[in-house]
Design a protein around this nucleic acid. Structure first.
Lengths: 210, 210
DNA sequence: CAGCATCCGCTTTGATACTG
DNA sequence: CAGTATCAAAGCGGATGCTG
């Protein structure tokens, strides 16, 4: 293992998770839960397959990732975070908060996976009326829809769709984030191609104040 | 610039500060303030000089580091963090907290710089009697002493020595941390080679409860 | 197909030497 | 002091092949 060889907690943390791709693998497992090798590849566009195998082995040796053989009928290898791995969530949250201003730039053909929406949405949306019945918003940004739900006074995002969602939003990732994080008003977002249907109150309930 | 090319704040943050050495350079500037090239090399044992020059240029282009020509009599180039660079402090704090269990392992000849003590000490020490007059503890772990001071109800660590310090501790980094973070009692620490002189109450005042 | 391992060309890193 | 120049070694990315 390449190491900075310093008696410093930051340096030693970077010894373990500072290599290319390592923290993004942890991001995938945090967002997706137990995942197959193939799912990880899908969530990490551009990773070389040998590197994914290498990193998974290193993360396993470091006690961050656990490998489990799923019993039939799944009958495949699943990778999951250990508790120690899940403890990296504050690091990823801090990185995401610091990085969010960077994402605003015009996109030049960046890769996107809809489950990545969970990070900014869970970080910035709120439930302004936790005493009312829960609401669900279905969001389409590509192939796979995600559901944004109020739960326990907070916001939860998960892959899936719901026939009875209170509202449905379809648009590019940047339009979805612009609207939901309240940087863009609905009329402007619609003018730029966003589709909204359903109950506007559901959206208002979760949007942060400007 | 090598990039993950993802529409994700974490990935874009790592595009900017995820390369080898980058976050450690930020650590040095956070701990030391405006620094000369030579000071940075001292605080980053093992870095190749061309890499330090490369990284400083990249961090400057990313708006994280600022380069200033100090006027005479200093008459040298100083590197400092921008506000945007200082915003990385929560990321480093989170990494340090996650990494701190790793540091406990037996040390095999790791590099150490006394100003690195500021991170764990400011993170874990407390001022249990902020109403009393401030106290100062002088800590020697190598060539350069640091001063641990109570200030504004918290703890501040800075390079330097003080003839009138309330207490003086001399030991290896791991013994100093063991004692001050209250993982090790004074008798044990002394048995292992730690030297303590002065007012024990000053130490007790800042130690966290076990 | 899932989960790798191998090979190859390219880039990045690290060690050392040298310069204005 | 603050870098640049050079070069070998390691790491990375892409393509492909292998195995259950």
């Amino acid at each position: 293992m390449r190491t900075y060889n310093e008696y410093c907690a930051i340096a030693q943390a970077l010894d373990v998770v500072g290599e290319r791709w390592s923290l993004l693998i942890v991001r995938e497992l945090l967002l997706q839960g137990p995942s197959r090798y193939t799912d990880l590849r899908y969530g990490l566009p551009g990773i070389a397959t040998n590197l994914l195998a290498d990193r998974l082995r290193e993360l396993e040796e470091a006690g961050i990732v656990r490998r489990e053989e799923a019993p039939p009928p799944v009958a495949t290898t699943l990778f999951d975070l250990t508790d120690r791995g899940r403890d990296l969530e504050p690091v990823l949250k801090a990185l995401g908060r610091w990085g969010s201003p960077l994402v605003q730039r015009p996109i030049d053909d960046e890769e996107f996976r809809s489950h990545w929406l969970a990070l900014p949405l869970e970080a910035h949306l709120v439930d302004r009326s936790p005493e009312k019945r829960p609401v669900t918003i279905e969001v389409w940004t590509g192939q796979h829809p995600v559901l944004v739900e109020t739960r326990d006074g907070g916001i939860h995002v998960r892959p899936g769709k719901d026939e009875h969602a209170d509202a449905v939003i379809t648009a590019t990732p940047s339009l979805v984030l612009g609207l939901m994080l309240n940087h863009l008003d609905l009329a402007t977002a619609k003018k730029r191609g966003l589709k909204f249907s359903g109950d506007l109150a559901a959206l208002r309930r979760v949007q942060p104040s400007r």
